[in-house]
Each structure stands twice: as structure tokens, then as C-alpha cells.
Design a protein around this nucleic acid. Structure first.
Length: 268
DNA sequence: ATGGTTGCGAAGCAA
């Protein structure tokens, strides 16, 4: 393997749970045209690999890889700085919940696009599976990556790291996304050597990345910050800017919004 | 939020 290049170029890195790429393609193309990410992670494409619009992304200047079964989940990475050594799944038999992780090396960074299982409810078997999946992700990182290298883990974690990441902790008590075991499973990833870079740059509460479609939650600011960009320290130290593009949670003409907003970080 | 929405796919499930 060649050594990492000594000279590093600025990198714009984004992640977005699009809730069906077929339904979201107009918004995604618009967003890419103004946000100009170099690397973009997508979740919930809900497409088969055959139906993934690689040609449309190629026309926008992006190479891509996709991992999907056509109905649920589905993850992808777009890159205009190269895309090498693609890999899918947790690689240990735990990723049987299907098409939730894809990784590739883009511009010298090992990038992971993840869609963590929702968990449904604390008493559901899916909740235990969510915890197991997060543990499997921690295991994958420890097996395949070095925390001193340039590693990014981006996506929909379906966990709000702290109470300041949800609109009303009391209302959510006893439900998923905020429970202790989920937060500890996420913390295990951070302890390995990752930084929740948006939170590092924005300590204030009330900044979310997901709002329920129902009940006017977006306009009432009833949201959660569950879409995260986790970076190893070498990348985190290069971060000059990070944002949730809340505007992209709105309809844009005929283009309907996802229930998630994209997160963008700039590395100098 | 116990669901008032969205997406998929053609009824009900998942989020």
C-alpha cells in the first residue's frame, strides 16, 4: 500500500438521510449543486443496486458506490476525489438487518456511510439488534481502521447523543434514541477515537437534523440531532466549519423534503 | 407522540 500523501487538500464532507433517493433525487441534485460536497454519504436510498442512479451522479462529476436491497435501507457514497476499496456490511454476521453500511477510501479518508437500525421501542427485539449493530460497528472500526488515521463515520445513527440534542427529553423518556444503552453504545465509538464534530463546533442546544413529518414538528422545532459526522482527531483538527442545512428540510418547489436535513463539514 | 405524514406498493408496514 502506498503511504498517505503528505499534502492534504481541503475537503467538503456531507451526509444526508434522503428517505428514498427516488423520491428525493430533485432535492439531492439541487443540494449538491449549491453545497458542492467532495464526498457525500447517503442513507435510506430504498433502491436496489441496479436502480441506483450512478449515471446521473456521474454527470454531476461524482463517482459512487451503493449497497441496497431495493426496498428498505440502502446506503451510498458519492465522491469527486476518488473512491477506492469499497466494502459493505459489518463483516461479522451482525449486519443481517441489511444494507446499512458502506465504506470506501475517498481522497485519503476512510469514509463510512451508516444507517443504524431504528430500534422501534425499548421492549422490541429490534432494540437489542440496534445495540448489537452499534457494537458491531465499533468492532469493525477496531478491526479495519486506526484511530490515528483519517477516518470518518457519517450517517443516521438513530441516537441523540445528549439531552440537548432533543426538543423535550421528558417527552421522549422511555423511548428509543435517548436511552442509556444506546448512548453508551455511541459513546463506545467516540471512545475508540472519534469526535462528534458538529457538537464540538456548536455547543448550544436546539440544533437538530431530523423532524417528524407529522404534527408540524419541523415548524414547532420538535426535532432531534441524530445525523452525525464522527471524525478521528487528525480530521477533526482540520474542521473549519460545520452546519446542518435546515433549509433542505423544506419543500423546494415540486421537490418534497426528506424528514432529515443534510449535515456538511469543511476540512481545511 | 399513544400519531394528525411520508414512502413503497397496492394493504399494511416502517420510520
Amino acid at each position: 500500500m502506498p503511504d498517505q500523501p503528505v499534502r492534504v487538500a481541503p475537503l467538503r464532507l456531507a451526509t444526508w438521510n434522503v428517505n428514498s433517493l427516488k423520491a428525493r433525487m430533485p432535492w439531492v441534485e439541487t443540494w449538491i449543486s449549491y453545497a458542492e460536497p467532495d464526498v457525500m454519504c447517503l442513507q435510506e436510498t430504498k433502491l436496489s443496486d441496479e436502480a441506483f442512479p450512478a449515471e446521473a451522479f456521474r454527470a454531476l462529476g461524482y463517482d459512487s458506490i451503493h449497497h441496497g436491497d431495493g426496498r428498505w435501507n440502502g446506503v451510498a457514497i458519492l465522491s469527486r476525489v476518488g473512491i477506492e476499496d469499497g466494502a459493505v456490511g459489518l463483516g461479522d454476521g451482525v449486519d443481517e438487518q441489511g444494507c446499512r453500511l458502506i465504506a470506501a477510501t475517498c481522497g485519503g479518508v476512510r469514509v463510512h456511510s451508516v444507517y443504524v437500525p431504528n430500534g422501534r421501542s425499548l421492549d422490541s427485539e429490534h432494540y437489542g439488534a440496534k445495540l448489537a449493530w452499534l457494537a458491531g460497528l465499533a468492532d469493525l472500526l477496531s478491526r479495519t481502521c486506526d484511530p490515528s488515521a483519517d477516518v470518518a463515520v457519517c450517517g443516521d445513527f438513530n441516537v441523540a447523543p445528549e439531552d440537548i440534542d432533543v426538543w423535550d427529553p421528558k417527552a421522549l423518556s422511555g423511548s428509543t434514541h435517548v436511552s442509556g444503552p444506546e448512548r453508551r453504545a455511541l459513546q463506545q465509538l467516540l471512545d475508540w477515537g472519534l469526535v462528534d464534530i458538529f457538537r464540538e463546533h456548536h455547543p448550544e442546544p436546539g440544533l437538530y437534523s431530523w423532524w417528524d413529518y407529522r404534527n408540524g414538528a419541523f415548524h414547532k422545532h420538535h426535532g432531534m440531532r441524530i445525523d452525525l459526522v464522527l471524525l478521528t482527531r487528525s480530521l477533526a483538527s482540520r474542521c473549519t466549519f460545520s452546519m446542518v442545512d435546515r433549509n433542505a428540510r423544506k419543500a423546494l418547489g415540486e421537490a418534497k423534503p426528506s424528514d432529515h436535513a443534510p449535515v456538511l463539514v469543511m476540512l481545511g
